[in-house]
Design a binder for these strands. Structure first.
Ligand SMILES: [Mn+2]
Ligand SMILES: [Mn+2]
Ligand SMILES: [Zn+2]
Ligand SMILES: [Zn+2]
Lengths: 137, 137
DNA sequence: CCATAAATTAATAACGATTATTATTTTTGA
DNA sequence: TCAAAAATAATAATCGTTATTAATTTATGG
């Protein structure tokens, strides 16, 4: 999965807190949101520390960063295999059960010559709330 | 596909050129790269104009913007249905023939309640060049 | 054609998310 | 307990992108 040999990190109160926050939500928060949550418990924490620790946790494979869209970075504490859908109107991101069919990496490898490590499947649509709002407009 | 009613744009030399540049490459260039190409033909063009026209062309559905990764915006003049793969080492993006399997939007809609409009499938791996370089290191 | 209104442009400033810098504090392990 | 290494808070810097505005270009219809 990772392309570089493992690094060993010193533990820190800040990183433990960030991981706990990410694990305790079903949403896919941004660094700014995590920062606001974190300072409720560690008022002196800084935004730079949040970014740095998110990168470390990602490197350790303890969290994931979504590759949905081109906007701000969104993080996911749920390591189970699943896909995502984003609402084109309000931007909300939700989990989607992983697609049943298996992806043929070897077929892709044969077609393009790359060694395939993983894939990302994202859906784009309109959430129930925005669908209703559009109907009532 | 689009969620807002069509707008009508006045034509412009700049937008025609940008579209031509995008159609004449098999790569997936950034706004900055397109800007450099464009100023070879229209030396007075500005980067802001490139960004604005890329947004317009996207809105018209005459080009696509990749949703690969969270980095800078990459554009694609090829409207045919296809997927993409990105090299985890050098960042190169290439086309992948569309996956044979059909995605069941109705199944996703049933699971999450969203109305699904489209999806994006991206692979991540290592390109032949980087694979060779790693072997020789 | 020409006049007029509307859209587009070039130049540049502003913005926002992220990363880098640095002096200080915390962690680790001998 | 102590010194080296790593992490932190504060803050500056970076970078891709968007907004602003006066000047230019385009559409159109008389
Ligand atoms: Mn998720
Ligand atoms: Mn493509
Ligand atoms: Zn919505
Ligand atoms: Zn490569």
């Amino acid at each position: 999965m990772s392309l570089t040999p493992a690094r060993k990190f010193k533990s820190s109160r800040q990183r433990d807190l960030i991981l706990q926050i990410l694990r305790s939500t079903k949403s896919h928060p941004s660094a700014a949101w995590i920062f606001e949550e974190a300072r409720k418990h560690l008022p002196s924490i800084s935004l730079g520390t949040v970014y740095r620790n998110l990168a470390m946790l990602k490197e350790e494979g303890r969290i994931r960063e979504l590759s949905v869209g081109k906007g701000i970075g969104l993080f996911d504490g749920d390591l189970r295999n699943h896909d995502h859908i984003r609402c084109l109107v309000c931007g909300r991101v939700e989990d989607v059960p992983p697609s049943a069919q298996s992806f043929s990496y070897s077929q892709v490898e044969g077609a393009v010559g790359y060694r395939v490590h993983w894939h990302s499947l994202e859906y784009f649509g309109v959430c129930p709330g925005c669908e209703t709002a559009a109907a009532n407009e």
